[in-house]
Nucleic acid binder design. Structure first.
Lengths: 220, 220
DNA sequence: AATTTAATTCACCGTGTGGTAACAAACAAA
DNA sequence: TTTGTTTGTTACCACACGGTGAATTAAATT
């Protein structure tokens, strides 16, 4: 009969938790550049040697940290269930624009996500494989959905979607340091509105072009 | 009568040059993360104390380095001279797509530019103001050109162009670490072709929409 | 209670970093 | 020749980093 845990002074699982959580809070508060053996140990209030014992190395800890996160999948889960074929053309366009807008909002708000993304770009670590898997898992399904919807599209939907998505990602990352970019105010609601409108326009234009069988959009 | 410089053992200007050049070669070879007082001094074959003497600080050196570079302006100089109004619609679309494609190619090839861009995203330094100025100088002119060409555009050309440009920038940066992203092969000519075609499609769609006075592209 | 096992702490090392003071050598001016 | 200024070198400091060996202490096993 275990009486509600009398605060055991030794608890492997708990210190592991502390370490994993320390990574997250450190990322949010100080950025990925602050991550290090000493900093994490201090943040967790635990000796650094335990990082090696429980996770082998800093990289091991980071990888374990990334594995228990779910940065992307939940965002696109709603999309998976939806049956795009039952929607009207306008609804599909709105839906598409919303997906991108939500992606942008998420990137803009989630500082931890920003740090992880930036970190991945700067150096290779245990992060990369894990995050790459998460991304594939969440996007490949969507891509397949659209390819099936526009089997004979004269334009490369995947390439266009990639450009737009990475653009939004980049803008969110730039907003960390720059208040405005290229005349777009990245931090104000007004700038947000401009981006959303631009996404609506793009979704309309691109999806309608994807529907026109006539091969009007050829490339010299 | 100065006989071709007898290798003077003391030469302020020369060591300044060495230091500035060391920043560039270090950026290209080792990346922005390797930049530091000691590393630069070693690369230049000069004592680090001279960095402080001649540039005040590392940040001063970096700023001086950025100031003597011209990352963007030269790329867009051809655009400035051109008279867009004399072109046909199709020519304008091609021209626009080419601008973006060239921007992407430049970002892909110029490792130093990649490092600078990434560096700017990661931390604030003397770089930011300088680069921001260079960017404004090269893009604002272009933007004005298009706004004057499509005064009553129902869509936000500037916002759309920003999304696309940052997307290309991000893709180029990602190519440093990832061979492919979202199914687009970033390092092969085939992937390059997909991006170029996507840019052509986008230029066509967007510029034609910018010309249609009917306000078809409204946002709920 | 004695002994083994596991969790945690402590103290230390080598290295690389930014930064500075003090000195030495080349050059120019007097 | 002497003096002062500029250019460069040497040596050093304090500190933060990743990493490790050995000791400690709590809990589980016998």
């Amino acid at each position: 009969m275990e009486t509600t845990l009398p605060k055991p002074k030794r608890n492997k699982a708990l210190t592991q938790r502390k370490l994993l959580d320390a990574v997250g809070s450190l990322l949010k508060r100080e950025g990925f550049q602050s991550i290090g053996i000493n900093a994490i140990a201090k943040e967790a209030g635990v000796d650094k040697v335990l990082i090696y014992r429980y996770f082998g190395s800093l990289d091991g800890l980071i990888e374990a940290f990334a594995l228990e996160r779910d940065y992307w999948v939940s965002n696109f889960k709603t999309a998976q269930g939806l049956n795009l074929q039952n929607l009207t053309e306008v609804q599909r366009e709105q839906f598409t624009a919303t997906i991108f807008a939500n992606f942008y909002k998420t990137m803009l708000q989630n500082k931890e996500l920003q740090e992880i993304t930036l970190w991945e770009m700067v150096e290779v670590s245990g992060l990369n494989k894990v995050l790459q898997n998460q991304r594939d898992q969440s996007t490949l399904g969507l891509i397949a959905l659209y390819e099936q919807l526009f089997p004979n599209s004269p334009i490369d939907l995947q390439a266009i979607a990639t450009i737009i998505a990475t653009g939004l990602q980049q803008l969110a990352l730039l907003s960390r340091q720059l208040p405005a970019f290229n005349g777009i105010n990245l931090q104000s609601p007004e700038g947000m509105q401009r981006i959303e409108n631009a996404l609506s326009s793009l979704a309309q234009l691109v999806l309608r072009a994807a529907n026109t069988p006539e091969n009007n959009y050829t490339h010299s």
